[in-house]
Write a protein that binds this DNA or RNA. Sequence first.
DNA 1: TGCGCGTATGTCAGATAGGACATATCAGGG
DNA 2: CCCTGATATGTCCTATCTGACATACGCGCA
Lengths: 116, 116
Amino acid sequence: MKRKRLESGGWRVGSVAEFLGLSEDEAVFVELKLALSSELRDRRQEQGLSQVELAKRLGSSQSRVAKMEASDPSVSVDLLIRGLLAAGATKNDIAGAIVRRRRKRSARGAARGNFL
Amino acid sequence: MKRKRLESGGWRVGSVAEFLGLSEDEAVFVELKLALSSELRDRRQEQGLSQVELAKRLGSSQSRVAKMEASDPSVSVDLLIRGLLAAGATKNDIAGAIVRRRRKRSARGAARGNFL
DNA sequence: TGCGCGTATGTCAGATAGGACATATCAGGG
DNA sequence: CCCTGATATGTCCTATCTGACATACGCGCA
């Protein structure tokens, strides 16, 4: 497959985190934040909420919600979790988001009603 | 049971969070932190690590590790998660700790090797 | 009693996160 | 073309977090 070909060509293939030279733990930590971010976006959109509305529930601002969903470095896991709870997620939902293997967004997925 | 008797006596019975008058989301959030804290302590002890040793791995100090395990308000979820990763936990372990229903420490549990 | 080890607690200066605001981009109407 | 609503991006100032340090506590041991 593609990975093999690239590696035999002298490339190291891996996650963004690896590329940036992060330790294993740091890599997992970043993955985790990414998972929470995208779960937040999905949930918010499923609820038909705008960033402004979610921000209000959270007692925060639209720009911060945007940063949360973009996994901006200035956003903590704490805030992401509070955001998820404000978006109606339960502890189980959060745990699920952490564990769930993320895959590229498929046309099928989009058609299934995600993405608005 | 005891709960019934207390309630009929005019007491409202519930979690510490409820007692403090926190919102539902805030309550879930502190539960979550408590879950991570105690998972951290358990893991560290299972690994036979002292707080000092874990602190070194984390690039932190013994006092902060103590606060993490005590779920001190000055400790963020971010730090707890980094601590767990440093203590060898995986994403699955973390998700598990979040979901797991916590129960009082039983004599059986202690005898099974926890608590050193 | 004194000592060593592990843990708990309080404090504080420096680092980081977060709310607020301004501004930019983009998609639909009209 | 100009609105309007939704989202993105950058900056500022303050609030919170964090590592470090000092100190206290508890316990086993000699």
